[in-house]
């Protein structure tokens, strides 16, 4: 059995959680359902044999995002919960539906999974270059690390600056100090 059946059930689960997240009027309920959505997506990545992405989804989606959103509604106001679900905005739904249809039409032009005429298989020069020359060029044994920290070093440095700035900004907003003066 290919993992086809489990993908179908997972798709239903992820779709239902995504719709519930969008439809809930109460923000706290939406955050909780969004955590459930993240659980479904992590299993999806695992089925697609991407354990590293599944791990990131586990750490970011279930852990950090939920905490950040909870902190956000703790520091701001939570709208009243007189009704459970948001009333549907029909014209907005129409626009989003049309956009989704356009995106879905382009899906058919992707190459099949494992197809021999896919660009990455039929033009192996680029990936082959990194696999063969990464150790010689950078001295790093792991090819992925060599690309991230060697060939794209400045790019990664920029990302680190952004993450550091975001962390500092979060601490300023929350009034917490990591290092206190004795």
């Amino acid at each position: 059995m290919s993992p086809g059946a489990i993908e179908l059930v997972l798709f239903a689960f992820v779709l239902l959680t995504a719709l519930a997240t969008a439809a809930f009027r109460d923000v706290l309920a939406a955050i909780i359902v969004f955590a459930a959505y993240s659980l479904g997506m992590a299993i999806y990545y695992a089925v697609l044999l991407a354990p590293d992405v599944a791990m990131t989804e586990a750490a970011i989606g279930a852990g950090v995002t939920t905490l950040l959103l909870l902190l956000t509604i703790a520091k701001t106001v939570r709208p009243g919960r007189d009704e459970i679900f948001e009333s549907i905005h029909w014209s907005g739904l129409l626009v989003v539906g049309a956009f989704t249809t356009v995106i879905l039409v382009t899906v058919t032009s992707f190459p099949e999974i494992g197809a021999s005429d896919a660009p990455i298989v039929s033009n192996p020069e680029v990936s082959q270059y990194y696999i063969e020359e990464a150790y010689h060029d950078t001295g790093v044994e792991n090819a992925v690390t060599a690309v991230l920290a060697g060939y794209r070093g400045f790019d990664t440095f920029g990302e680190a600056v952004v993450v550091f700035a975001a962390g500092v900004a979060t601490m300023v907003v929350l009034h917490t100090e990591v290092f206190t003066r004795d």
């Binding site: 993992p3 909780i32 695992a46 599944a54 909870l70």
Partner: peptide
């Protein structure tokens, strides 16, 4: 179960991370 069914041992690490974070999430909420 997927880790055994697909023969991917690295999925067990993802399961471990989930077991830890699931607890954290419930406590936070």
């Amino acid at each position: 179960l997927l880790s055994v069914g697909l023969g991917e041992e690295s999925l067990l690490d993802v399961a471990l991370i989930y077991a830890l974070l699931n607890f954290l999430m419930a406590v936070a909420i």
